[in-house]
């Protein structure tokens, strides 16, 4: 396919066009999934609250996301007085670019990926750390106290939880000896307990798996860590001044990063596309992208479930959890893991 394009368009242009096509192939299904995750969230929350949820537009509300989209697009974009205009419109763009750019290195199966880079884990953490700019700028640019408070809260929270997440990833890197996602998944298929659910990273790295899962919820600013939105205190937090399409971009970015964190958790700790069943079980035992999708959907359901279940954390407790509980646990576990890996009890030989 790429050769064909390069034949007609020349070497460099063909290369660029091929990668553009690939980007569209990744982003369009992702956007559709985002649309239906928003619907799923409303229906599941409705079910958990013993009410119906959005079921009016189309069969079972299946067209609701598109109705929402149309409504967002046709709403007026209100710019607050004395807002810093350029930054005001830069913020939703930054947050969305960061949420989408990370997908460039996420593999869906050993053959299906956008790019296969050696420093995939580093890239994901680097771009993930840029995402906070979208929130802090949105909070500042609106020239509103509520949105500024939301932005400040989000910044402090995301920086704190990035550390715990980074250390949790260090454990994964230690085991697989690589920053490449495909190597990381493949390393989970090997070792002494190879070929079963037990060889995946979530068992030997259980504390880190839990910390990564919880920090992921905090990183995406979802309930119960959604103090930067905190409706009961600061209206809607960092995006209180946004309306219409920019607001829709914030929503898109939030759900895209939710899916991303789920996908990363699956790849790092839950064996990615590896099948939980033995190879001899026919189609169920095959490693395929379907397993990745199933695992991601389960984690996404978790995201919605936490929102319906847990009350919002108090802000000082969030910071305490990140710095005084998660960080020490991951640090200790890195030493435990190092000792375990060189001891005769190592299961990764």
């Amino acid at each position: 396919m790429m050769d064909l394009l390069q034949h007609y368009l020349g070497h460099d242009l063909g290369y660029a066009v091929w990668y553009l096509i690939k980007a569209v192939i990744v982003i369009v299904p992702l956007t559709l999934v985002v649309a239906y995750v928003t619907l799923a969230e409303r229906r599941i929350l409705g079910f958990m609250h013993a009410r119906i949820g959005a079921n009016r537009v189309g069969p079972q509300g299946m067209l609701q996301p598109f109705a929402d989209l149309l409504k967002f697009v046709f709403k007026e974009i209100i710019i607050p007085a004395k807002a810093s205009k350029a930054v005001f419109f830069l913020a939703p763009a930054v947050i969305l670019i960061c949420a989408l750019a990370t997908w460039a290195v996420v593999p869906f199966s050993p053959e299906l990926y956008f790019t296969n880079v050696n420093a995939g884990v580093l890239y994901v953490t680097a771009i993930g750390s840029l995402g906070v700019y979208g929130i802090i700028l949105a909070g500042w640019a609106g020239n509103s106290k509520y949105s500024f408070l939301g932005g400040i809260r989000a910044t402090a929270q995301m920086i704190s939880y990035e550390l715990a997440m980074g250390f949790a990833l260090l454990g994964v890197i230690m085991i697989s000896g690589s920053l490449n996602f495909i190597d990381i998944v493949n390393s989970q298929a090997g070792g002494r307990l190879a070929g079963s659910i037990l060889s995946w990273n979530w068992i030997p790295l259980f504390p880190m798996f839990l910390i990564y899962l919880i920090s992921g919820v905090a990183e995406t600013n979802r309930a119960p860590f959604d103090v930067c939105e905190g409706e009961s205190e600061i209206v809607a937090g960092f995006h209180v001044e946004y309306s219409g399409t920019p607001f829709a971009l914030f929503m898109l970015a939030e759900y895209a990063s939710m899916i991303l964190v789920s996908a990363l958790t699956v790849i790092m700790f839950l064996g990615g596309w590896l099948s939980p069943f033995p190879q001899s079980w026919g189609i169920l035992g095959q490693h395929s992208m379907a397993w990745l999708v199933v695992k991601v959907l389960i984690l996404l359901f978790g995201f919605i479930w936490y929102r319906a279940t847990f009350p919002r954390y108090r802000y000082d407790q969030i910071m305490r959890l990140g710095w005084k509980v998660f960080l020490p646990i991951t640090l200790v576990w890195i030493f435990v893991l190092g000792a375990w890996m060189v001891s005769p009890l190592s299961i990764w030989q």
């Binding site: 580093l122 906070v132 700019y133 400040i152």
Partner: peptide, 17 residues
Amino acid sequence: LTLILVYVGAVMVLFLF
């Protein structure tokens, strides 16, 4: 990537803050 991670993602965020 470390430049982005450390300087952009952490130092400059605190600066901006």
